[in-house]
Amino acid sequence: MTRGARRLLGSVRGSWCEATVAELDRSREWLLAGYHARGARHARRWFRWQTQRLAGLIDPDPDTPWLPELARVPVGSAGRSDAAAALRRWADDVHEHARLTRAASEGSLYVFTVTDDSLRYTLSHRPLHSVPCPSAVASVTSVPRA
């Protein structure tokens, strides 16, 4: 990113993390959770919590009292993808943690996506830029007069 572009965007003031679920054809998407992280450590902690929370909702413990008997279908059987297992693995995946930390330090986008038979679960991290002072924008965008 050029110095002029940085001045236009302003400085990074934390990041926005969100969890969404969408139909595979992307006809509908729902925001499940959002979080303003102050730094990479906070973003990583939120991601760890959200991956575990989503995994528990997708594939709850079989002894969960509210779970109807008919809903107790083994995940990952009969060619089904196991989105819950992929979400649970994120908590211990040091490679993914490093990718998130690198994206946070560079001020770039990080996306982690898993799918099952009908839905796409996405967790994302993007930098939040402060609003630049109008005079700074004018000095970058103005054309010098000859």
Rank of each mutant, 00 (worst) to 15 (best):
G4H: 11
G4L: 06
R7H: 08
R7S: 11
L9E: 02
G10P: 03
S11Q: 10
R13Y: 05
R13K: 12
R13L: 07
R13T: 08
S15Q: 14
E18Y: 13
A19W: 01
A22E: 11
E23T: 15
L24D: 05
D25T: 07
R26N: 13
R28D: 02
L31M: 12
L32Q: 06
A33Y: 02
G34N: 10
R38K: 12
R38N: 06
G39K: 03
A40F: 04
H42L: 05
W46R: 09
W46L: 00
W46K: 04
F47H: 08
F47L: 13
F47I: 02
R48I: 01
R48Y: 06
W49Q: 13
Q50S: 08
T51Q: 06
T51F: 02
T51V: 09
Q52S: 12
R53K: 14
R53W: 07
R53V: 01
R53M: 02
L54Y: 00
G56V: 00
L57M: 05
D59V: 03
D61Y: 06
D61Q: 09
D61S: 11
W66R: 12
W66S: 11
L67R: 15
P68W: 04
P68R: 14
E69D: 13
V73W: 08
P74S: 07
G76W: 06
S77F: 09
G79C: 08
D82P: 10
D82E: 10
A83S: 10
A83Q: 09
A83V: 02
A84N: 05
A84K: 08
A86V: 01
R88P: 02
R88T: 02
D92K: 13
D92R: 12
V94A: 15
H95W: 04
H95M: 03
A98D: 14
R99L: 10
R99Y: 02
L100N: 05
L100A: 04
T101F: 03
A103K: 04
A104N: 04
S105G: 10
Y110A: 15
V114D: 01
D116L: 05
D116S: 10
D116Q: 06
L119I: 00
Y121C: 03
R126G: 12
L128D: 04
V131T: 15
P132Y: 07
A136H: 14
V137H: 05
A138W: 09
S139W: 09
S142D: 10
S142V: 01
V143A: 09
V143G: 00
V143R: 15
P144M: 09
P144V: 04
R145V: 08
